[in-house]
Lab assay of single mutants.
Amino acid sequence: YHADPSLVSFLTGLGCPNCIEYFTSQGLQSIYHLQNLTIEDLGALKIPEQYRMTIWRGLQDLK
């Protein structure tokens, strides 16, 4: 799967570019796929713990 530029820029902007593959490997290719994820969902996606809160907060800021 290839990540949408919106996803790449979002995660890169948060300092988490190495997390892109965790999302794309589950078929979550764009920022729209991420918008309703919970902190528990990020854990289920195996996002490293040190990035989960950062990503979750970033998603809240998009709403």
Rank of each mutant, 00 (worst) to 15 (best):
H2Y: 09
D41F: 01
I47Y: 01
Q50G: 14
G58D: 02
Y32K: 15
Y22Q: 10
W56I: 14
L45Q: 02
Q35Y: 12
V8I: 08
Q29K: 13
L45Y: 13
I20N: 03
Y51R: 05
G13F: 05
Q29G: 10
T54S: 09
G58E: 11
T12E: 14
L59N: 01
W56M: 08
R52D: 02
Q60S: 12
D61V: 06
T12R: 13
G58H: 06
Y32P: 09
D61I: 11
T24H: 06
E21S: 10
W56E: 09
S25C: 11
T24C: 06
Y1M: 15
V8W: 14
L42D: 01
L28T: 04
H2C: 15
I20D: 03
P17N: 05
I47H: 00
G58N: 03
P5H: 11
Q26A: 14
G58F: 01
T38R: 08
P5R: 14
A44N: 08
I39V: 11
G15L: 01
I55R: 01
E21T: 08
I47F: 03
L34E: 01
G15K: 08
D41M: 04
I20R: 06
E40M: 06
C16D: 00
T54A: 09
L37R: 04
E21Y: 09
S30G: 07
P48M: 00
R52M: 05
L34T: 12
N36C: 02
F10Q: 01
Q60H: 03
D61W: 06
A44W: 07
W56N: 05
G13P: 04
E40P: 05
L34I: 11
L11P: 00
F10P: 01
H33D: 10
G27A: 03
D41R: 08
T54V: 14
Q26F: 04
C19E: 04
L62R: 10
I47T: 02
Q29F: 10
L11M: 06
E21K: 08
H2V: 10
L62V: 10
N36K: 14
L7T: 05
R52E: 07
A44E: 15
I47C: 05
L14C: 02
Y51M: 04
Q29I: 15
N18P: 03
A3Q: 15
I31M: 11
E40W: 07
C16R: 02
G27P: 03
Y51C: 07
I55Y: 00
T24R: 07
Q29M: 12
L28C: 12
T24M: 12
S9R: 13
P48I: 05
M53E: 13
G27V: 01
T38K: 14
D41W: 00
Y32S: 14
F10D: 00
Y22D: 06
H33Y: 06
E49I: 03
G43P: 10
P48K: 04
S25Y: 03
E40L: 11
Q35H: 12
I20G: 03
C19L: 13
Q35C: 07
E40I: 15
F23A: 00
Q50W: 05
Q26G: 09
M53I: 07
A3K: 15
L14T: 03
L7K: 00
G15R: 05
G15T: 02
G27R: 10
V8S: 11
F10S: 01
R57A: 08
H33F: 03
L42N: 01
H2E: 13
C19Y: 04
L42K: 02
E40G: 13
P48A: 07
I55K: 00
L37Q: 02
L7R: 00
L59T: 05
S9L: 06
L59Q: 02
Y51F: 09
I31K: 06
Q50F: 04
G15C: 04
P5Q: 10
C19K: 01
L34W: 05
T38A: 10
L7F: 03
H33C: 08
Q50P: 05
R52F: 02
Q60I: 12
M53F: 06
L59V: 13
H33N: 09
K46R: 13
T12P: 00
T12V: 08
I55Q: 02
C16A: 05
H33Q: 13
M53R: 12
L42T: 02
T24P: 02
I39N: 09
L59F: 08
E40T: 07
Q50R: 13
C19H: 02
E49F: 03
I55P: 00
Y32F: 13
R57F: 15
V8E: 15
S25Q: 13
K46N: 11
C19W: 02
H33L: 05
G27F: 00
T54M: 06
N36W: 07
C19A: 09
Q60K: 14
Y51H: 07
I39F: 05
T24S: 10
G13Q: 12
S30N: 12
Y32L: 14
V8Y: 10
I55G: 00
N36R: 12
L62A: 06
Q29D: 14
A3T: 15
N18W: 04
I55V: 09
Q50K: 13
A3I: 15
G43I: 05
L34V: 12
L34F: 03
G13A: 10
T12A: 11
F10Y: 03
K63H: 03
L14G: 00
Q26L: 04
L11H: 01
Q26K: 12
R52H: 13
Q50A: 14
F10A: 02
I20K: 04
